[in-house]
Design a protein around this nucleic acid. Structure first.
Lengths: 303, 303
DNA sequence: CCGTCCAATGAGGAGATCTTATGGGCGATT
DNA sequence: AATCGCCCATAAGATCTCCTCATTGGACGG
């Protein structure tokens, strides 16, 4: 990705506006201000003239801008050279636990596929323990899971953040909003089976908020799709990954419910066998995935 | 300074060794390992082959190395263009409190002078309050102080870290080393006058460690040079900036004493009038100073 | 086979950077 | 002329990155 600070400057200069640049870079406007300020302090001179209608380059800024373009171009060349090695091909076997396999990875796989059409992709899904096992046995070079997972011979690395969102059906009576954790615990829940990453994350968050209390499980189902349907039918509430209910939230068949004081975030991890980070196709895929996740932070849809 | 991560890679590649690169960059060896690892993960491939006797570039690493050289050269061009604007000239008036004015700034002023011979430099020294006053009245565009300092209309910015070191004369009986804070408090001290940045820093550190107790002042003197002389003569101990006793420590006329549990670090600040950071000659000087400080972190001599 | 050198790993902490919330200034609008 | 709106600066707080210290693991050379 190269030199972030320089990229920020470049975009601000090109757009002639701090806030437009912030939007384009998926940053807040103050963050952009700070980056520019740091750059100006590094060089000891004003690079941009702030006006009421945006920003214009100073003479020094003009000089920097010209060089910045050249540098950023070189970074692009690097990406082109390093990320498109001589026609990657072969088979890439991956393993992922349910939410990742169903909602996050498919889009990424599609993008990867279109960039390297010669690679045959195979995605297995299983629970966290299975995925870890497969990776440790080297059945797959790379695995993705939704919960903490430590096994000897296994390297675990944080990949992204996922946000769980509590949803209700349209007709499910909304108490006063926002809910307290207490309200929440008094309502019937639809849940996945114990051991599912989503369920464990919810229970961990509840333990942290109100030790010793567990939610009332009105119904237990084996897949997120089934859970969503049950919630749509008004059986109860559920906590699911924001990724899995994007469409339903847009359609309005499910409604997000805010529960105060409940930190429903969890980490997503990537697994690979102990030793150096995977290279070859697997390495390329991981790098591709990381770039996709970074780009996707735009959507503010978790991550 | 450009893209630090790329520079680290470049040096490792050129040196063929993580640890030699670490030494050259004034970093620890693990820090270099982590930078390289991050780069390798970003591109999804191994860039360096680790051997028992160092590291060699892989094919991908070679490609990156070539581009890295070009990019780093462009950064140098930027510095050359932006940091040498059309023959800076005129007068630069600065103000600094005692330790800075006596021990840190002179070398930096000399360097700046030789880079911009046309600039006439004037350095005033005074205590923290005076310096702040001068800056606020715009008598100088830039001031440097050794202690916290908040005044309306004044912008304060952390500049560097300074380490105070406790010293004793050769013949001063050393108790068992290392000292405890209690031992330390029972010994006679040579000190600057109250209000001096050094003294305030020492007293603040003691307050933090042993509330309510103050050191025994055997002698109070008006300058650091006088303090040093008194300590050399065995009057007592003193806490002084490491910068001010570099020579004496090397000569062995003063000896550093470790006092356990006493955090004798303080921050150095730069002051300028509220508003945009100073530009022109003052801005250039500040940028020059920051680069000098960064480079000097090599000496491990505080900063 | 052991000593030595080099890089990797883990724990802990300091610093950098982002976010939200808020203020101030200039132009445009009425 | 006063007000509204847009844009950038600042402040406070939280997070996360990155560095250092200490230690482990591996390979080469004696």
């Amino acid at each position: 990705m190269g030199d972030f600070r320089l990229r920020v400057f470049y975009v601000v200069a090109r757009e002639g506006s701090f806030s437009r640049a912030a939007a384009e870079l998926h940053l807040s406007q103050p963050a952009v201000s700070l980056q520019i300020k740091a750059l100006e302090e590094e060089y000891g001179q004003r690079l941009l003239d702030r006006t009421a209608r945006g920003a214009r380059l100073t003479a020094a800024g003009e000089r920097l801008y010209r060089q910045a373009r050249r540098i950023l171009q070189l970074y692009q060349e690097i990406e082109a050279e390093l990320l498109s090695p001589p026609a990657l091909s072969g088979e890439l076997r991956l393993a992922a636990s349910s939410t990742l396999a169903n909602y996050l990875l498919p889009a990424v796989l599609a993008g990867f596929q279109s960039e390297w059409p010669k690679v045959r992709l195979v995605l297995a899904s299983g629970n966290t323990r299975q995925v870890a096992q497969w990776v440790r046995e080297q059945a797959v070079p790379l695995g993705f899971v939704e919960g903490p997972c430590a096994l000897p011979g296994l390297k675990v690395q944080r990949l992204a953040q996922d946000e769980l969102v509590v949803v209700r059906g349209r007709r499910f009576a909304a108490l006063r909003t926002p809910f307290s954790v207490g309200d929440f615990l008094s309502l019937p829940m639809v849940m996945r089976e114990p051991g599912s990453g989503t369920r464990e994350a919810l229970e961990a968050a509840l333990r942290a908020a109100v030790p010793g209390k567990l939610p009332q499980v009105a119904m237990q189902l084996g897949s997120t799709e089934a859970v969503k349907t049950a919630v749509e039918l008004g059986i109860g509430l559920a906590a699911v990954s924001r990724w899995s209910v994007e469409k339903e939230l847009r359609l309005g068949t499910l409604l997000a419910v805010e529960v105060q004081g409940l930190a429903l975030r969890r980490q997503l991890f990537t697994l690979y066998p102990q030793g150096p980070a995977p290279g070859g196709v697997a390495g390329q895929f991981l790098a591709f995935l990381r770039r996709a996740l970074r780009a996707q932070r735009l959507a503010r849809t978790g991550v």
